[in-house]
């Protein structure tokens, strides 16, 4: 799929772009945090507790997004035997796992003062926990199967089956009565977050996306170095 020349070219791009992404990330997260923690107004009901939302919601979005990406790439990687796709998936997994964990932990911290409980076995929270377990098994599958071909296949199968969970998470609040409130940001209908609060939310999402991209580039670079060291001229 990719010959030696291309491999070197990709490597140059992924190494050089890192510092620009890092620079951009620092700017965006600074603006985002300033907006989220200081400039944005407090909520009429939750007052300052609402600020947890600016970490909680973007992390959840990013972790869902990365898992969907992993699933699609793995699917096409398996079908067309494109190993590069699978390696991209592998490199995205750690940041997805991290953001999934952040979403659950911040949700728990937010839940205690507002709902009155750290944890509830409602559909949204449980399905999010299942996503975390899927991430965990996906990452683990790369570690336990030393045989490369086996690891490629099994991890891809895990991520493809895991995609079923994504719509369940998304629509859990509509299908069942849950303690978790329904979605506030909708593409089809009106958004129920005031624009002054939506702005920091968007900035924080961009910041987290950039962070994921940065971690991805580092991980992907490591994978490329590993391939190069093995003297393999193709992915």
């Amino acid at each position: 799929m990719i010959n030696h020349l291309n491999l070197n070219k990709i490597f140059t791009i992924t190494s050089r772009s890192q510092k620009y992404i890092l620079f951009l990330f620092i700017i965006v997260i600074s603006v985002g945090l300033l907006e989220a923690l200081i400039l944005s107004p407090e909520d009429y009901k939750q007052s300052d507790a609402v600020r947890i939302m600016y970490v909680h919601v973007p992390s959840a979005w990013i972790s869902l997004g990365i898992f969907s990406l992993i699933s699609f790439l793995s699917f096409f990687g398996l079908v067309f035997k494109i190993k590069n796709f699978t390696i991209i998936s592998k490199s995205f997994a750690p940041s997805g796992f991290l953001f999934c964990l952040i979403a659950l932990v911040t949700g728990s911290i937010w839940g205690k003062p507002t709902w009155g409980t750290w944890w509830a076995w409602d559909a949204r929270i449980t399905s999010m926990l299942i996503l975390l377990i899927f991430y965990f098994i996906y990452i683990l599958s790369w570690k336990i199967f030393s045989e490369k071909d086996k690891a490629f296949k099994i991890s891809s199968y895990i991520s493809i089956i895991g995609i079923i969970n994504i719509p369940i998470i998304k629509f859990s609040v509509d299908w069942w009565s849950t303690l978790h409130q329904p979605a506030s940001v909708n593409f089809m209908s009106e958004t129920s977050i005031h624009s002054s609060m939506l702005f920091p939310l968007t900035i924080m999402t961009a910041a987290f996306a950039l962070f994921s991209l940065l971690i991805f580039l580092m991980k992907y670079n490591t994978e490329l170095i590993r391939i190069k060291n093995k003297g393999l001229d193709r992915l």
Binding site: E42, D43, Q46, H194
Partner: peptide
């Protein structure tokens, strides 16, 4: 035995409310 608050999906500053 336990009371949990369920909040809605609306977020806005107090002035808007």
């Amino acid at each position: 035995k336990k009371i949990l608050a369920k909040h809605d999906e609306n977020y806005m500053p107090p002035e808007v409310k």
